[in-house]
Design a protein around this nucleic acid. Structure first.
Lengths: 166, 166
DNA sequence: CTGATTGCAAATGCTTTGCACGCCA
DNA sequence: TGGCGTGCAAAGCATTTGCAATCAG
């Protein structure tokens, strides 16, 4: 967890008159230990490791807080659950490519894309706030080799694919 | 409902060995009477008008069928329910601008955007299948006039806004 | 006839909430 | 000590499913 993050979080907690608790700390610690996006369930799994006991309710409540604090961004991959993205202070735009074969999610940036999006938005008479591009595509690796490494892993995890909500 | 649509639907029904039923007909009729996007609930409302009795189960089942037949496209506006888009045969890309003040949804197209998206996708080693850009923005009308006509209507309808799932 | 289709109610899966108790500041 | 926070279980919501009855071809 960068000092930048910690600062923002502390500021938010103080401003809102909130409190530091072991549960909150544990959750925040785990989230910002990595910069990968995750679902509430991913987080729940990681939380079960250490002796830190939390409830799902607290988990969800904390996610809301962090989102409100601007430390997390909610993104929708279309799989029936909300995905959260930490470490986005440096990445204003959220573009995701989801492989419909293996479910792999790639986050990418493209300056041209951003400029273009801004132009379009203004042309329509709006002021851009947040933009997310979601591309569903199929993996060339699967087309050529017949399968890709993520596919097997995804199947094992019982991962949901785009389109299939539940 | 254009003959184009009817043709595709009949072909699909025949190919799959499905059947024509009054419920299916009623649903299809209502959907393709307009080219607006809608939620299952919007559709349910319209269905309650005529004497045609259907259940929500049939409604959802029919939506799945039409999606599978390629006559409907599922899009996710981030409000907790699936939105469906008919009349998309002519519009391959789905770009939506959602006003975070009034909830208004604008569908737009931009050729440059599409070309660019395709480039990015290929550069990442994928083959594009479906792309949807979602921009959250705020209405200039609200900034200048203090409110916009959609806001009042949206409030009355108890509309959900992006970010607030339930 | 026979399998596709329907409606109902119950089940799902993710997320939120009410409530009483506990703990931070 | 006064609330904020927490856990639990129950509630919510959109959507799906099991099943027996019904209907289309």
């Amino acid at each position: 967890m960068t000092p930048e993050i910690r600062k923002r979080l502390d500021a938010f907690i103080q401003m809102k008159g909130l409190r530091h608790t072991p549960q909150r700390n544990a959750i925040v610690e785990i989230i910002f230990a990595s910069d990968e996006h995750f679902t509430p369930d991913d987080l729940w799994e990681k939380l079960r490791g250490p002796g830190a006991r939390t409830s799902r309710a607290t988990l969800y409540r904390t996610l809301s807080l962090l989102t409100e604090a601007g430390l997390l961004q909610e993104i929708d991959l279309g799989d029936g659950q909300t995905t959260y993205d930490p470490n986005f202070l440096e990445k204003p735009a959220h573009n995701h490519l989801v492989c419909i074969d293996c479910g792999k999610v790639i986050e990418f940036e493209d300056d041209h894309l951003e400029v273009l999006n801004e132009c379009v938005t203004r042309r329509l008479g709006f002021r851009p706030v947040k933009q997310s591009l979601r591309i569903e595509a199929c993996c060339e690796e699967i087309r050529s080799k017949g399968q890709c490494p993520n596919l097997i892993q995804a199947r094992l995890k019982g991962q949901r694919f785009p389109g299939k909500k539940r």
